[in-house]
Each structure stands twice: as structure tokens, then as C-alpha cells.
């Protein structure tokens, strides 16, 4: 026992010494899990002789909490559009001025003057997508482009639906479905939203994150989920089709930002510029299976992505979507209460 203890202490001491030094030529990226193309990172490392370390997070809230607490050692973070204003407001991001970088010309005009970062003074696009409807054509042959699929499910889909357990995405779809605006605090409408969700929930089978596997395996017949996952489900099972709810659906875009207390600012800036190169952006898309915001990256993408309807909505389909911005804290409170009550 004593010997074991000694060995343990020695081992621990060894590790303690390992973490401290921060040499030149490093870059610490804090990103969503399973979202960063290893080939792209390798290319970056080789080109700039920089050692990249990637650390995962699984939610915007976790990432924000960790960075806000300090002492994290990260340089780059990839928050979603609805969180970028919070990050900026809390003074966590460096005004890196990517709009003055060499490769900025490649950014699609559509993604330059965005609500969450007008003119792109802080962030550059990483990947974007949306939450929409996935349906198995053989079970339901009607129009998939409506939130009614999960809010007023047709009989053939009842009991076979999975809804992403994401408070904001679900609340968004329900509010728009009932004719409201995102972040509304109209009590009457919210009452209807509450009742609609309560009424719809028993007709769902699950609220889980395994939509890709289970749509492909025909265990679910319909889902309210992210488009990239449905793209991959369709590649596995051609019966899967994707719909853009005409009542309204939320877009998301994750953007790369540099932290104010970053230790490797120059490398982080190189990285920002690097991912605005169409070829590199395409590498990210090929790995993550979502669209990026870089012009001319399409021709470097895999064939299956180039003509995928899931990540290339038509102008009409785009018009129904909207970016969810953070609601006022009082409104968020009401939404949380409704959500808790629906799921109690």
C-alpha cells in the first residue's frame, strides 16, 4: 500500500510539472465536440509550424461558464450566433478585426453584416445549419415543410416522433407555428404555446440526441432535428427526407472568435484567416457535414455535399428561417418555466 502511494505521488508530481509551460507556436482551440476536421488542423499545423490542441464542449452554456470563470488557457472559441452578443457584451472576445484579413474577401456577403456581429469585427463563419423536419417518406408521404409534423402530428406519425431536447429550438418552432415572434412576451400567445406543447408531447416517442442513427434505422419516422444529421441519415437510408418548416425555423451559425485573454493571439489570427480559405472551409464541411459561409468552397466539397438539398435551402426556404438572438432575461425565464412545466 505504501509503495503504491509513493508511486502515485511520484506520478502525480510528474504530471503537475507538465501543464505549466506555454511555448511559442501553440494554439488552443475550444470547440464543439467532433466538429473540427483533423486533416484541416494537420494542414494548419504543418503550414505554420504551430501545435494545435483541441478541447471539446457540448453546450454554449458550458463554454461560456468555463471561459467566464477564467484560468482556462484557450485562445479560440466557436460560439453559436445567439451567444456571440453575450460573449461580446461580457467583454470576453478580442476585437480581432477579421474583416481586415486577407481572406475575408471569400466570406459570402450574406454572412458579413449579421445581426450578432455587424461587419464581422469579432468573428468569422465556421459552419451553419438549421433545425428542421426529418421524415421517413414511406411512412408519411405529405409535405414535410411544416412544424405540424411534430406539433400537430398526422396519425401515421404519432408515437414515432423524436424531438431534439433543446429548449430554445422547440420553443422557437412552437412560437412561430402559432404566429408569434421569437422572444415575444405576449401572455396569450405563450399560453397557447404551452398548451400546444403539452398536447403534442404525448404523441412523441422520445426527446433524445440519437436522431441520426434512429432515423436511418427506421426506429423514428419523424424528427425535429439539425439538417446535417438528417443529411447523413439520408446517405444511409434514402427514405429520409428533410423539410424546412414554412411557419418558421431557427438557423444557427457557429463562428470562430479569439478570446480577450488568449496567449497566442497571432496564431489565432492566422487560424481565422486560414479557415476563410475556400479549400480549408470545404475540409471542415466535409468532416462536419454542414455548410460553411465561404464563397467558392463548394467545388472542394465532397460530391454528396455539393448537391445536398439539406444544406442548400432555396431562397424561398431561407426566407422562412431566422437566427435566434438571445431573448431578454425576463423572457428567457418565462420560456424556462413553460419548458419545465411541459416536461414535468
Amino acid at each position: 500500500m505504501k509503495r503504491l502511494l509513493k508511486a502515485a505521488i511520484a506520478g502525480a508530481a510528474l504530471l503537475m510539472s507538465a501543464g505549466a509551460a506555454l511555448a511559442d507556436g501553440e494554439l488552443n482551440i475550444f470547440n464543439w465536440g467532433d466538429y473540427t476536421s483533423p486533416e484541416m488542423i494537420k494542414k494548419f499545423e504543418e503550414k505554420y509550424k504551430v501545435k494545435v490542441t483541441i478541447t471539446d464542449y457540448d453546450s454554449n452554456d458550458t463554454a461560456l461558464a468555463k471561459v467566464r470563470a477564467g484560468g482556462h488557457g484557450f485562445d479560440v472559441v466557436v460560439p453559436s450566433a445567439n451567444f456571440v452578443p453575450i460573449w461580446i457584451k461580457e467583454g470576453l472576445l478580442l476585437e480581432a478585426r477579421p474583416d481586415q484579413m486577407e481572406n475575408f474577401k471569400n466570406v459570402d456577403e450574406r454572412w458579413v453584416n449579421v445581426d450578432w456581429d455587424p461587419g464581422r469585427r469579432y468573428t468569422v463563419p465556421w459552419q451553419w445549419g438549421l433545425t428542421g423536419i426529418g421524415v421517413n417518406k414511406t411512412v408519411y408521404s405529405g409535405d414535410p415543410n411544416t412544424s405540424a409534423i411534430f406539433l400537430d402530428p398526422p396519425p401515421e406519425l404519432q408515437g414515432k416522433i423524436n424531438v431534439a431536447p433543446e429548449m430554445n429550438d422547440v420553443m422557437y418552432a412552437a412560437i412561430r407555428y402559432l404566429g408569434g415572434k421569437w422572444c415575444t412576451d405576449d401572455k396569450e400567445l405563450l399560453k397557447k404555446v404551452h398548451d400546444k406543447l403539452k398536447e403534442a408531447k404525448p404523441k412523441w416517442l422520445a426527446m433524445d440526441y440519437s436522431a441520426y442513427e434512429k432515423m436511418a434505422a427506421r426506429e423514428y419516422s419523424a424528427v425535429y432535428y439539425w439538417n446535417g444529421a438528417m443529411l447523413r441519415a439520408r446517405l444511409k437510408n434514402a427514405e429520409v427526407t428533410f423539410g424546412f418548416p414554412k411557419e418558421g425555423y431557427p438557423f444557427f451559425m457557429d463562428s470562430v472568435a479569439i478570446l480577450k485573454d488568449a496567449k497566442n493571439v497571432e496564431n489565432a489570427k492566422l487560424f481565422m484567416n486560414f479557415i476563410m480559405d475556400p479549400e480549408n472551409a470545404a475540409m471542415i464541411s466535409n468532416f462536419a457535414k454542414y455548410a460553411n459561409g465561404i464563397k467558392g468552397s463548394d467545388k472542394f466539397m465532397d460530391k454528396e455535399l455539393q448537391d445536398a438539398p439539406e444544406i442548400h435551402p432555396t431562397a424561398e426556404q431561407v426566407a422562412a428561417g431566422e437566427f435566434m438572438l438571445p431573448c431578454a432575461p425576463e423572457v428567457n425565464d418565462i420560456y424556462t418555466k413553460i419548458w419545465t412545466d411541459v416536461l414535468k
Partner: peptide, 23 residues
């Protein structure tokens, strides 16, 4: 997940990151 610093992924936290996409 909350205590780890940069580059300190463990197997469970790595899996957690994969959970929303594909395992």
C-alpha cells in the same frame, strides 16, 4: 467537463462531444 483545462480530454468527455453528432 467543467474542471478540465485545454487539452485535458478524457474518454467520457470526448464521447460527450460526439453524442450530438454521431457515436
Amino acid at each position: 467537463e467543467f474542471v478540465k483545462s485545454g487539452g485535458q480530454e478524457t474518454l467520457p468527455t470526448y464521447m460527450l462531444g460526439q453524442l450530438r453528432r454521431t457515436v
